[in-house]
Each structure stands twice: as C-alpha cells, then as structure tokens.
Write a protein that binds this DNA or RNA. Sequence first.
DNA 1: TCGCTTACTGATTGGTCAATTAGTATATAC
DNA 2: GTATATACTAATTGACCAATCAGTAAGCGA
Lengths: 209, 209
Amino acid sequence: MAARPKNPPPDRRGDILDAALRLFAEKGYDAATNAEIARAAGITAAALYYYFPSKEELFRAAVSEHLAQFLPTLTNLTRQGGPPDGGSQEPFRSLLQRALAFFTGEKSQLVLKIILAEGPRRPEIRQIWNEQTAAAFASLMPYLAGAIADGRIRPVDPRLVFVLLQGPLMSAIVLRDLLQIPALQELTDEALVDAVLEVTLPGLLTDGR
Amino acid sequence: MAARPKNPPPDRRGDILDAALRLFAEKGYDAATNAEIARAAGITAAALYYYFPSKEELFRAAVSEHLAQFLPTLTNLTRQGGPPDGGSQEPFRSLLQRALAFFTGEKSQLVLKIILAEGPRRPEIRQIWNEQTAAAFASLMPYLAGAIADGRIRPVDPRLVFVLLQGPLMSAIVLRDLLQIPALQELTDEALVDAVLEVTLPGLLTDGR
DNA sequence: TCGCTTACTGATTGGTCAATTAGTATATAC
DNA sequence: GTATATACTAATTGACCAATCAGTAAGCGA
C-alpha cells in the first residue's frame, strides 16, 4: 500500500546500482534476480522498472557507471608519484603500489568479477570496459614511450612493458584473490611489488641493475 | 519414437561433455540450457539424465574431466625441455613457449572462461581447479626451488618467481584473447615470450644479464 | 485544496527451463 | 527366440522469473 516513501533516501538510483553490482558480481547475471536486487536496494522488483527499462539496461548501467567512477583514479596513476627519473625505481614503486591497492579494493574486485565473467561472452561489456579504460591506457602509453624516448628505460614496446609489469599483479589478483589458490594466500602485496621492482624493473631500466 | 540409436556413436558421454563444456563456456552456466547441450550432442534433453543426475553434476563433470585431460600436459611442462642449466635461458624459453601455446589452445580457453566466470562464485569449482592443478604446481615448485638451491637462479620465493614469469602470459591471455582489448591485438606469443626472457628472466638468473 | 506528478506497491501473466515419467526400439544373454 | 537390460524419446509438470499493469500515497505548484 505504501507508495511514495515518507523519508525518501537521497540516492535511490545509486542504491540500486550498488545492490545490482554486488549481486551481479556475487551470483552472476542470470542467477541474480530482480527481486533480490530490489530487496537489497530497499524497494520492490517492479520499482526497478521505474529507474531502468530492463534488467539488461540495469546491468549495463551498473557496470558502466561504476567503471566511470574509477576513471579519475586510473588516469591519475601515472600523474602522481612523479615521472620515471633516471634509473630510479621510486616512481614505479608508487605506481605499482597504488595500482595494486586499487585493484584489490572491494568495489574494484566486484567489477573485475563481472568483467572476467561476462566480458568474454558479451561484446557490449567488452566495449564498456574498453571505452572506460582506454583513457587510462592512453595516459600510460605516452608515459612509458616518453621514458623510452628519454633513454631512461630500454626501447621495448610499451605494450610489452605494460604486460610485463602489470601481469604479475593480475596474476596475484586472479589466482590469489579471486580463485583463492591456497599456495598463494601468503603472498603479500608488498612482497609482490618488491619482487617486480627487484626482478622485472631492472631489466627495463637503461642502467641495468 | 526412435529409442536406441541404430548406429550408436562410440562415446556419447564424451560427446555430451564436449558439448556441455563449449556451451557453458560460451553462454555461462545458467544461459546454457539442457536442450541446447543435448542438441549439440545429438540427443534430447531427457537423455542427459541417463548419463548425469542433474545439470549441476553435468557441469562439474565437464569441468573436472576436461581439466583432468590437461593434467599430463601441465605436469610435463617442467619435465620436457631440460632442467634450468647455468645461466641459460633455453629451458625457460621452452617452458614459457609450451605453457603459452597450451593456454591459448581452443579447449584450454573454454576451460579458462568457465574457471574465470564461475570460480570466483563457486567453491566447488575452485576446489576442482585446485585439485587438478595442484599436481602441476607441485612439480613446478621443486623445479624452481631446486634451481635456487643450486644457485642457478637467485633466492626469490618460488611462488613469486611463478607469478613474475606466468603473470605476463596470463595478462596476455585475459586482456588480449578473452577481453580482446584492441591495443593488445598485435602482441604475438613470440614477442611476449622474448620479452619475458629478455626482461624478467635476467633478474632471476644468478649471472645477471 | 485541487490537480498533477513522482515514486512507488501488489498482483498477474507469459514464457522458459530443469527435472520427471511413462513408454519404446534396439542390442545382448541365454 | 524369448527375456532382460540398454539407451534413448515425447510429453508433462512445477517452479521461477522478467516484465507489465492498475492502483495509490506522498510531495508540490498554483
């Protein structure tokens, strides 16, 4: 009977998007029902259709708008901590630390679960991912290319540099955190970053190790 | 009306498992229907229940038995190509090449899609993955630990060595192949392996670069 | 205070799907 | 050549779920 709520929450739409992101990540698109999402957001299933035209659109909005929230953090990864300076690993330590801290964050992990689960089978999800991360990628490539042009890091394809540095972080996030492989549980973020800095990075810097 | 088939295929169960793996990978567990799987296997949906007690059990069997097929290949990765010998990158080149070739294989990618999609939300899938890959992991760790004990590679936690070498491969498989990020499409397996050998590996070998 | 808009709820519908059941043609054992 | 087990099919059932719809209480501008 209660139609319009007496003390309305300030951001119902945001609440729905948050609930949807969590449930889509935890149970998958099909297994997460409108009723569950609505209940988690404090409304009924029918009310979802007041804010979104379909479950599909709600899904896309949840992924897209949460990814958009990450954009400033991602593009700022290369802007803070200073430029790579002659042979020093400090700017890279800062970059890797903040990148890893970001991707192990709770919200990020929810988004990553969805991207890994639905991305490979949904072109529109891949497109959202590509559009939203393109800016971050586009700021990282000149950062690396510039360091190469200045002779601070060896002339290696910046995309390879990216994969070499980011790969170990991704491996830890997927294997340790998402798949919870027992043998990797004791790996700390610090040890991982240190290892990349001590093992991989020297192979990239022009002054060797 | 046609009940028992006139010329029965030799491995109906295997056909079902193959069809199930493909459809579960392409569409996800919920979106892949019994009817589709059955049709792809050349039978009706009801006949699935002659071979498997439920859709869940079929799913588990498809993942588990296909993973089991990979086991010999995975454990042999460290046995072929020779042991890591003094400062040479050759054994590692062979190891990385074969590992990457394996994981970019068609069947492997189907399994990987399922593991990445369902693993994070299903403990039983993580368990199957852990059980089946534990043997490969258990053969890799002494391989690396032995090389450390012999002083051929630097004393770095073998789990970190694993993550540093495997991470870039995983990054390529996930970002380039599964998420099809445009900027990474031109990355070849060869260039990737070369980069790991030239950049990351020298940081691990005792004689430096 | 009236009328309109906003922000919902409860009930219903149509469709889909996993699972069950009863039946049947083929092969195999004796 | 009959009996029994094997390997299925067609049809049905029950449950669930996305989406729709009619209604309704609260805010709001004139």
